[in-house]
Simulated assay, not measured.
Amino acid sequence: MFATLATHHLWWLLALLLIGLEVALPGYFLLWIGIGAAATGVLAWLLPGLSLLAQAIAFAVMAFLACAVYAWMLRPKLRRTESTGERLNRRGAQMVGRRYVLVEPIVNGRGKARVGDGEWLVAGPDLPLGATVEVVKVDGNTLQVRPAA
């Protein structure tokens, strides 16, 4: 079967195998080597007379360059977005600084505010129904609020 395939097809098969392994064993490493194999396949397709040694060297260079692009360009950007993701599973922490409207007045320090399609318990100074509040802190499932400026 492989004897009838052109060399560039073999590089593309290797790329698919490596990227498929990345799906099974995530970690961003095999993906970039797979991209290097795909790029080598494109090079072998564009230059059909390229020797196998030259293709192997090109693969090593392309895989290294793909990994370097990830490490020096993409990874820092992903880290910045991950640092904001520390609140990902803490929905309340994402609400600090946001403003909401009271659907129940705050009486004796307790009330409710509309958050999306639901209601959250709020604690703060007494305020009338419909007042806009700003979240300053989250305490369990209760939002600590103050009147919005």
Rank of each mutant, 00 (worst) to 15 (best):
A93K: 09
G130N: 13
K112P: 01
H8P: 04
T7L: 10
Y100D: 03
W32L: 14
K112H: 05
R91M: 01
A39W: 02
T142C: 00
G116L: 02
E22F: 11
T81M: 02
R80F: 05
A131E: 14
L121R: 05
F2Q: 15
Q144W: 00
W45H: 15
L65H: 03
A38P: 02
P125L: 10
P105S: 00
F59G: 03
L47S: 10
I19A: 06
E82T: 04
A15W: 03
I33L: 11
K137Q: 08
W11Y: 09
G49N: 12
C67Y: 07
A44S: 11
Q55E: 15
G85H: 00
F29E: 11
M73P: 04
I57N: 05
A113V: 01
V133N: 01
A44M: 07
T142G: 00
W45P: 02
A39N: 03
H8E: 13
G130W: 12
R90K: 11
A3G: 15
T84I: 00
T132K: 09
L65S: 10
A44I: 08
I57Y: 08
R110G: 03
W45C: 08
F64C: 04
T7A: 13
R87F: 04
D117Q: 03
L17H: 11
S83F: 03
G36P: 05
K137D: 08
T84E: 00
T84M: 01
M1N: 15
E86N: 07
F2N: 13
V42I: 14
I57L: 07
G109H: 08
G109Y: 10
A38E: 04
A3F: 15
S51M: 15
L102G: 01
G27N: 12
V103L: 04
R87T: 04
P76A: 01
G140M: 02
A38V: 05
Q144L: 00
V136T: 07
L129F: 14
P147N: 12
R146F: 06
P125D: 07
D139V: 08
H8Y: 13
R114N: 11
D117K: 01
E104W: 01
R91Q: 06
M73R: 10
A6E: 14
I33Q: 04
T84K: 00
A68Q: 07
V101E: 15
R75I: 07
L46H: 09
A38R: 02
I35G: 05
W11H: 07
V145Q: 00
L43D: 05
A44Y: 02
G109Q: 12
W11C: 08
A24I: 13
T81S: 01
A3E: 15
P125F: 09
V101Y: 08
L31P: 04
A93P: 06
K137S: 12
R110D: 07
T7G: 10
L88R: 04
W120H: 06
A149M: 10
V61F: 09
L46G: 08
T40L: 10
N141L: 01
F2R: 13
W11F: 09
V135C: 06
R80S: 08
M62F: 07
